[in-house]
Amino acid sequence: MNSAPALTRQHILDLLENVKDPEVPVISVRELGVLRDVEMSDGKVFVTITPTYTGCPAMDTMREDIVKELHNAGIMDVEVKQILSPSWTTDWISDAGKAKLKAYGIAPPEKTADIRALKGELPVVPCPQCGSKDTVMVSAFGSTACKALWKCNTCLEPFDQFKCL
């Protein structure tokens, strides 16, 4: 007994805007680039997602949260599909998403096209707190699979950097 006739793809996209990355709860699955597609067929909703990192444990949570969000809106017939190809890149994080990461204290990833990181060189990562470019990587791996740990030499604060992928 749902209101299927009124349901539009945009309505679903709007609802999914409420589904956030459980580890960075300021950015939505769409802004993160994890949400790849929404399709509707015979009243059933198909949501396609792609993992950030292969082993990212947040993926299972995001999948459950998507289903929960739609169920709460009375949309019961939902299938979440996971695809691996084309593989996720940090370039898919929207500009608004990157701004939110920065405001949250996480240095956003650089563009993959023009970075030295892919060549194995360290990028210049400005401090999200004070903007200083005098920063240093403390560890190539951080609190989650997608982050590295950095430190600012100017304000002396540690910060997370969203790794470029």
Binding site: Y53, T54, G55, C56, P57, S139, A140, F141, G142, S143, T144, A145, L149
Partner: peptide, 10 residues
Amino acid sequence: IALTNRALDL
């Protein structure tokens, strides 16, 4: 943290 992250990727 680095080693457990790597374990997670693998």
